[in-house]
Each structure stands twice: as C-alpha cells, then as structure tokens.
C-alpha cells in the first residue's frame, strides 16, 4: 500500500529530494550530492526521530506550495522563507493543510522532513536528486510523495513539543567567518596571495548553485597554472584563471584541474551553503 503524504502544488524556484549523499561512486565521476545544508536537514529528521539518512525535501529560496494528503508530523528547518508552519520544531499537520513558502527572508535552502522519511527510489544507493546526471526522482508540480511504512512518530506523553535548541537554530544573516584548511596546491600561491585571501571580505556571487559558489572580491594574482586533473573534495576553494575563488559544493565534479588553495572545514560548509548572493564572508586558517 502506498502512503501518500504530500502533493506538490508549486515547486517555486526549485524543489528536490536529498539525503546524506551518494557515496562510493565518485570513481565513476558521480558527484556526492545530498543536502546543501546538512545541519538543517539533519535537524529536520532528528525532530521526528528519523534516521539521519532519511530523504528530505530541499526547497530553493521561495515559492513552493504543498498540500498534506494525511494527518502527519512534519518538521521545517533551514532558510526562513516566511513559511506558514512553525519552524525548527515537530509540527502535527492535518490532511488538507497547505504549506507555503511565500517569500525568502534569510538563507537559501529550506528543509521539510516527514515522519518516517519520504519513500523514494534509490539511484546508486541514494535518493538525492542530481538533475544534470538524471539521478533521483524529479519533483514537479503535481508530484505526489509518499512516506515509509515505519512506525509513526509519537510525542512522549507529558511532553509539550519537540524543538531544536536555540543554540542550534541558525541566523543565516549573522557575520560569517569560515575555517579553511590548506589545500593540495597551497604552496603554489604566493605569501601575498594567501594574505590577501584571508584579509579581505568576499561576496557570494549570483552565479552560484549546487555545483559551486563563486566569490567576488579583489582577485588573487595566481598564475593560471593548470595542474594534472586530480580528486576534488566538497568544500574545496579553487582558484581558476582570473583569480576569483569557486568553492566546490555538493554537485561539484569529483575531479578537476584547477589549483585548490584550501578546503573549508566540513562543519562550516552548511554555513556557506545558506549564503545568498551578495552576502559577505571571510576566511580564517583552521590550522
């Protein structure tokens, strides 16, 4: 029996199913994919007692609208898109409820989890959508999503609610400094370039997506050394010709030929993911 839980009325600027990613296939050229903000996605699942690998819905900025097809517990976390449902907490939704994300207020990616997790076909071991590679279930207007046959979520008796602690809810507009470790080509860059990189404010460019976030500022002078194509980790700070950094995100290619000055600490990538175009940020050495 299918347990239909949600119908998508409007995908807004973009809706996709994501989980913790597609691991083990980078040697075939397949990127990791998965939730851009793993911190928020993880909290959406935790609030409902789901395992960390349960698929969630990832919404881009604003405009999404979905209807509940049954009574169920849900949780909305991540970017503030003026949702009509209370966020960062478990919420009991009722059949017929329409959940809307009308206007992006802060951050980029919003997550919705349902009790038990969304039931979804795995492609190369993961439910994560990688659209360009045609992997994953493509969400569209009219798509009906199901939940798994797991045990239903129950609030313990006597407990008023289930909330994300305040110190774990994030303000995506707060000043941001990202910890960066040295990358494989750290030594290719001059002392001046490294200094300039850490001392300046970088601005997230509108030309950013799940593949990479481009940063604008005073370009580094790095000569355009092409290196032999080598493995690239998510969070790598690449400096291509022109000297403006590109941070490789979750749909980024597993190998590449641009020099990598550094790599953002894995726990900080979720902060960068929520930076809207125009947001400024700085880097500090992790060592």
């Amino acid at each position: 029996m299918k347990l239909q839980i949600v119908e998508l009325h409007d995908c807004g600027l973009g809706v996709s199913i994501q989980d913790t990613g597609r691991h083990g296939w980078r040697k075939f050229g397949v990127p990791v994919s998965g939730s851009m903000d793993d911190h928020a996605a993880d909290w959406a699942n935790r609030l409902l007692g789901n395992g960390p690998e349960a698929p969630v819905l990832e919404l881009l900025l604003q405009g999404a609208k979905l209807e509940m097809l049954e009574d169920a517990w849900i949780a909305v976390t991540g970017a503030d898109a003026n949702c009509n449902v209370a966020t960062w907490r478990a919420v009991r939704a009722t059949k017929g409820d329409v959940i809307q994300f009308s206007r992006s207020v802060s951050g980029v990616w919003t997550y919705i989890a349902v009790e038990g997790g969304f039931e979804c076909a795995r492609f190369l071991g993961s439910a994560s959508m990688f659209a360009r590679g045609k992997l994953g279930f493509p969400c569209a207007t009219g798509s009906i999503l199901e939940r798994t046959h797991g045990e239903r979520f129950k609030l313990q008796s006597g407990v008023a609610g289930r909330f994300t602690p305040m110190n774990e809810r994030r303000n995506y507009d707060s000043p941001l400094t990202l910890k960066m470790w040295r990358g494989p080509q750290w030594d290719l860059f001059t002392e001046n370039d490294r200094g300039a990189f850490f001392s300046q404010q970088w601005t997230v460019s509108p030309d950013s997506d799940r593949v990479g976030y481009r940063l604008s500022g005073t370009p580094l002078t790095a000569d355009s050394t092409q290196i032999i194509s080598e493995p690239v980790r998510v969070g790598s700070v690449q400096i291509p010709e022109g000297g403006s950094p590109i941070v490789i995100m979750r749909d980024g290619p597993p190998v590449g030929g641009y020099p990598k000055l550094g790599i953002i600490d894995p726990t900080d990538i979720s902060w960068l993911a929520q930076c809207r175009p125009g947001r400024t940020l700085k880097f500090q050495p992790a060592e």
């Binding site: 691991h23 083990g24 980078r26 040697k27 494989p184 032999i228 194509s229 080598e230 493995p231 980790r233 597993p254 190998v255 894995p266």
Partner: peptide, 17 residues
C-alpha cells in the same frame, strides 16, 4: 575508510571522521 577517488597521479582517501 569511506571512499577512494582515483585520478591520473593522485588518489584521495576519505575516512569516517
């Protein structure tokens, strides 16, 4: 060891942290 990514002259080894 979680994942290995080979390339021409280098191999990346990623571990469960």
């Amino acid at each position: 060891l979680l994942e290995v990514v080979p390339a021409f002259t280098r191999i990346l080894l990623e571990f469960d942290r």
